[in-house]
Design a protein around this nucleic acid. Structure first.
Lengths: 143, 143
DNA sequence: TATTGTTATACTCTATAACTATA
DNA sequence: TATAGTTATAGAGTATAACAATA
């Protein structure tokens, strides 16, 4: 792949820039989370729970074993950000939902991310639209 | 910011896609690292040590406290991937360098990342060039 | 005095395995 | 039998604080 003139070196350079950008995005996310006294997994959980979801679904989103979600939910629940509710039919599943305080925290986090994420801040609207197009193919589960 | 017709909603959607893509990249990185029995921080250290560097510099790259690097270096050293050397003039600093096995591991990891990273795999050369342009501004420390 | 690397400590995240209560 | 959530356990990463050696 690539042209014959610049074979592998260019790819390595591109990858370096990619990981540089990804690192910056991660760092920014962790920093914004930390300002709300949240760890990265906790913040990801809060963002995911825009709509209530089973513990299992959160484990899937976090790409971690389901057993870990117990502790993460425990800590968020003890801080009053999340509540464990019944899911109706199937009495095995517990529906994780944000409390009023959780909703408030989520809104703050989202706002701060919009204000500070390098992807949002460092690009113009047009550039962001182009980026959006590229990211859609990357983020998609298809293919 | 943005046009008056689609103010905040579009930004939130874009951010969702950004984090989706970032999550995919992180997951892929962790998976490629795991195939070489490396944790993410260990793999990041290996990639960083293309050239020997002081422990302190690695801490900076990993965006963590210097005390953590002791343990990370310990584990890599006990596996024969890294070696602690003297830095010459300043006898306080220890220069962390890859061993021959470490160089080999680094090459394998780099190759696998080039082969599997969603950013590299899911985009055409032209798209990657466009992405490169955008990421250069995001990854840059300037501004 | 300041800096590099280390140690000690405590907390969080992580996977694995075994358990319970449902289904 | 299978699934959702929990518990127990062990390992790794993380920050903080205190330390030794060196600058």
């Amino acid at each position: 792949m690539s042209s014959t003139t610049s074979p592998k070196l260019a790819d390595v350079e591109i990858m370096g820039l990619i990981f540089g950008a990804v690192d910056r995005a991660i760092e920014n996310f962790q920093q914004m989370a930390a300002e709300l006294d949240l760890t990265a997994p906790q913040a990801r959980a809060i963002m995911f729970l825009g709509e209530a979801a089973p513990m299992r679904a959160l484990a899937g989103h976090l790409s971690c074993d389901a057993s870990n979600v117990t502790g993460i939910a425990d800590r968020l629940e003890s801080r009053g950000l999340v509540r464990r509710g019944e899911a109706g039919q199937d009495r095995r599943v517990k529906l994780l939902a944000l409390t009023a305080q959780g909703v408030e925290t989520r809104a703050k986090l989202e706002q701060r991310l919009l204000e500070t994420s390098p992807f949002m801040v460092k690009l113009s609207d047009a550039e962001r639209a182009t980026l959006l197009d590229l990211l859609t193919r990357i983020a998609g589960r298809e293919r």
